[in-house]
Design a protein around this nucleic acid. Structure first.
Lengths: 193, 193
DNA sequence: AATGGTCTGGACCGATCGGTACAGACTAGG
DNA sequence: CCTAGTCTGTACCGATCGGTCCAGACCATT
């Protein structure tokens, strides 16, 4: 084996992810990525198939490291209502803590859903299915515990919470500030009270 | 006066709007617009300042012809809860009726809020302020009539309804179907019941 | 009919796009 | 030390980007 790579692929994907996350797929160029990573063009194309490949890998990395990781943490919370509240608390603080206000890569990508490759579509669709399923499970558990009124349909309420989540993520990209985002998250709780 | 324009500016803006609406600002090229309108490059630049100008005009046209027009119609409804319900009904059916699933140009644009020109930012911000104000007024009226419980904070609830609206518009761009969108709209009503 | 002003079509601009080619740097195995 | 194989850096590709330029078409006025 002669001469190994001078960089870690995952580092490059991480940096590429940041760029796609902030500027969106259409608005980021390969040059943006080579500048962000320091990797030269030739090395980049030697390690990856191209822009599409890099975007898919970025999205997958985001999906596993951010979304799945968050869901895993939230599922560890015993009290269902607390789990949902903690979820929205995290989302809001995440919006506020990011100085670049990148929002959520999955939500940003979902806006262009119909224009995406099949593979990318699948990642986005699965992510939202799992998120919806998380809410639904928590609501059902809450209803079994008697913490959440049975009047709320778990499936429908879960979808509504997803809609609010998307709204927060979009409006949190600069349109709304701390107070407004917190108020919205607070109202989300009212759907399960 | 020699030789008049062979096209109506407003027609061109209308077509440009459709393209921006479907593909987004970054992904639409001037060629896309000349092809959609039939106008040649020279004529286009003779009538407009460039891509930015065309986008701003498209957004303004959308804002006045779609958003303001819709709000005006909804404000004519006497019953406040009915007004809000009708609003969401319209949004959902609008999502379902559009075969291209373009969503809402204002919402699509809001996602890139921080990367927009000041002028465009202002249009988007004002639009959302007016939408929020509409919800807030209807909620207040509903509370005066006794139709909407006083437990709901008008300002906070209005913002939550906006978030749901944004969620519907984003997820309605291909991710979710009729049933899901209707369920979400239905849940929105629960915030004012 | 000549003039003057405006609009059209399309050639053209430099810059940048995503992607490729390849010379040379480099190292593990012989 | 040599060779075979892989990675790096850069020049380069055709295509397309947003935008400009201008010759010529056109018509109202005189």
């Amino acid at each position: 084996m002669p001469w190994e790579k001078s960089f870690e692929e995952s580092d490059v994907v991480e940096q590429a992810m940041q760029v796609f996350w902030e500027k969106g797929y259409a608005a980021t160029s390969i040059s943006d990525i080579t500048e962000a990573t320091g990797i030269k063009r030739g090395s980049l194309y030697n390690a990856f198939d191209g822009k599409d490949d890099l975007f898919l890998r970025s999205l997958l990395k985001y999906d596993t490291e951010k979304r799945k990781e968050l869901l895993r943490r939230m599922e560890d919370i015993e009290d269902p209502r607390e789990a949902i509240a903690a979820f929205f608390d995290y989302i809001v603080s995440d919006c506020l803590n990011d100085p670049n206000k990148k929002g959520c890569l999955l939500v940003n990508t979902a806006l262009d859903y119909l224009h995406l490759d099949d593979e990318v579509q699948k990642v986005v669709a699965d992510a939202f299915k799992e998120l919806t399923s998380f809410f639904e499970q928590q609501i059902k558990r809450g209803q079994q515990h008697g913490d959440i009124p049975d009047t709320a349909s778990p499936k429908a309420t879960a979808k509504a919470l997803i809609a609010i989540l998307v709204g927060i993520r979009v409006l949190g990209r600069g349109m709304l500030g701390k107070t407004a985002l917190q108020q919205i998250a607070e109202q989300a709780q009212r759907l399960i009270s």
